[in-house]
Every structure is written in structure tokens, then in C-alpha cells.
Amino acid sequence: TKFLTRPGDIFTLTPLVKYFLSKTPSPYEKALSVQSRAEQAQAMHHLLLANARAVRNYREGKFHGKIGIALNLSPCIDPVTPDSSAANTCSLVHNGWILDALYRGVYPASIESNYRKYAPSFKPSKSEMQSIMQGRPDFIGVNYYSPTLVKNDDSQPFGVGNVANSDKFPSYNGPVSPAHMLQLLQWLDKNYDHPEMIITENGAGFGASDERMGTGVVLDPLRAKYLVGHADIVEKARAEKINLSGYLFWSFLDNFEWLFGYQNRFGLVSVNFDDPSLKRTPKSSYFAYKDYISSYKKRNGCK
């Protein structure tokens, strides 16, 4: 069974697994249901209230620095009908729910009314929403990996169906599209009052074919290409005067991934998990990033 982890994503299932799931609904499918999302929304509301309190405490403590919040954000794209209801709804559920609360002091009305059908007691007060907005962080951490491909599908939660990744070399975490990261940053800049942003996660893994051992280096050309393509977008966004103050690649080392354990790798440096000393070997993406950083001045005409 192959798991995908973006909004609207579904299982890729064998016929046998499909048969058993037809008898017993899968926990994953249940988690994406409107009813489950309504329960999650209540938990998220309290998380945002706690976040606001932490921000206020930080500022009252007069600490020298900035405090932010990191969010998993992704543009919702309908490849066939760009302005479809599925694309708009997906964006409200996945991106707008938290951002509207932080920057506008409200939740998207259409999504909130949908949640109320399953969680009638969920009635955020005006004072709570005001508190969330007043506790807005200094910057938004943007965790971006890929766009979310969707289509209208009334059989799916919110009417949002998943569109399969058609990339020739698919990554674990969705279609490779640096251009959509720029689109996301432009959308955030336009709709949420030009916030300061930091790319707090951006990365990819392509499987064993992109993790081949060379002479003293692990060869991962697909990850290297992904990294350089998205780093280029960072420079384009800054050239457009988008307030983007940092970029962090996920990740420096191969590590434990939430859904994948140690099986799927995302690091710039390979870790041998079968070696008691956890031997580390740099990858070609590591050297590609090193070269990209060292050539910054030359590319941008800096003195």
C-alpha cells in the first residue's frame, strides 16, 4: 500500500486491500472525513489560542528576536478547471483556515458552517478570534513540498477528489513544481498583508534509484535538481520584493520521517542506519547546494 500525505490524497490500493477496506473503513480515510476534520478544527482552535498566548508572553518578556509559526501550506490546483469548487474549497480547508484566523480574525465561513453540522458546539467567540489575531506571529514559516492536485468529486470529503501525480520520476511528497512555490508565496503576500515569511521546510525524496552510492558520495541527481529549482524561486520571490527572509532545506541528514520511518530518505547527507556508528556520506545534492550558495554573489552581481 502506498500512502500519500496531502489534502484530498487517497490510498493506492491492491484489490485485496480494497476488499477488506470495503468491509472496514480505513483509519486514514476516516481522518480525512468532514466529521473528523470538524473535530480537528476544534483542536486547532485551541492550538491557535495557545499560540497567541505564547506570542504575547514572548513579547511581554521583551526577548530579542522574532517568534513565528510554521504551517504546512500548498496551493490547490485543478489541472483541468483552474477555478473549480474543489480547488477553492481545498485552499480554504488547507491554507485559509489558519491564515484567515491569524490575519482576519475569522474562519472561512463556508468551511466553518460545514464543520458545525458535525460539531454544533464549535462556536468560537469574537473575543477568542480577536485574541488569535492579536497574537499573530512575527513571521509565517512555510513548509512547502508540492502543489496539491485536485478535481471535483462529490464522493469525496468536501467534494475534493485527488488527481494522481503524473511525474516521470515521482517523489514521495507530490508533484515537483518550483513554480507553484512562487505562486504560493505571491498568494500569501497579496492576501495576508505582506507577511514576513521563511521557507521552514522544502525537500524531496525519490527512492532507491536516487540514492546510489558512488565514489565517496551518494548520487541523488533528482533531489539536487529539486533543490536548485526551488532555491531559484527563493531568489525570484525576493526580486519581486516578497518579504522572504530565509530558506531551510528538509533535511540536512536522513532521519526518521513520520509516516515512513527510516525507509524514505530526504537528507543532503546519507546516514547508514545499519552501521552502529551511523556513518554519514554527503550526497551530490549536498555539493550542488554548496556550489549554489558560493555562487550567490556572482549570480546576483554583489560586490
Rank of each mutant, 00 (worst) to 15 (best):
N173Q: 11
P157R: 04
L149A: 02
M213C: 13
G203F: 01
T148Y: 00
H230W: 10
V217W: 05
V228G: 02
A204P: 09
P147R: 03
F158K: 06
Y145P: 00
D193P: 01
S209V: 14
V160H: 10
N162F: 09
E201Y: 13
D210E: 12
L222M: 15
M213E: 15
L185G: 03
V163G: 09
D167C: 05
E196T: 13
K236D: 08
E201K: 11
S177Q: 03
G205N: 02
I199Y: 12
E201M: 12
W187R: 05
P175N: 02
S209F: 09
V234G: 12
Y145F: 15
G214N: 12
V160P: 13
R212L: 15
P221F: 15
V150C: 07
P195R: 01
V218G: 04
M197E: 03
A231M: 15
V163W: 01
R212C: 11
P221E: 08
A224V: 12
P147L: 00
G203Q: 07
S171N: 04
N162W: 07
S166A: 13
P221T: 10
L182F: 10
S177C: 11
H180I: 00
L222N: 07
A179L: 12
Q156F: 05
L149M: 11
G205Q: 08
V160Y: 05
F206P: 00
M213D: 12
G229K: 04
H180Y: 14
S155Q: 08
V163H: 03
H230N: 14
E201F: 13
M181F: 06
M213G: 13
P157Q: 06
P175L: 00
M213I: 09
T215K: 14
P221M: 07
S171D: 08
E235K: 04
V150E: 01
T200K: 14
Y172C: 07
G216S: 07
A231N: 09
V176S: 02
F206L: 06
V218N: 10
L219P: 04
A224P: 02
Q183Y: 05
L227R: 04
K225T: 07
G205Y: 03
I233K: 10
L184I: 02
P175A: 07
V217M: 11
V228W: 00
Y145K: 08
V160F: 06
A164W: 04
T215A: 13
D153W: 05
K190N: 08
L188C: 09
M213W: 11
Q156H: 07
Q186E: 13
S171R: 02
Q156P: 01
D232A: 11
E196V: 14
N202P: 14
Y172I: 11
A224T: 06
N165L: 01
R212K: 15
V234F: 08
S155T: 12
P170Q: 14
H194C: 13
T200M: 14
Q156G: 10
L185F: 01
G216A: 07
K168M: 15
G207Y: 05
L184R: 03
D232M: 06
E235A: 09
S209P: 03
Q183N: 06
D189G: 00
E196F: 11
D154W: 00
H194L: 05
L227S: 04
L219G: 04
G161R: 01
V228A: 11
V218M: 15
K151V: 11
E211S: 08
P178F: 03
N202K: 04
S171V: 03
D154T: 10
L184C: 05
F169H: 15
P157M: 05
L222G: 01
Q186V: 05
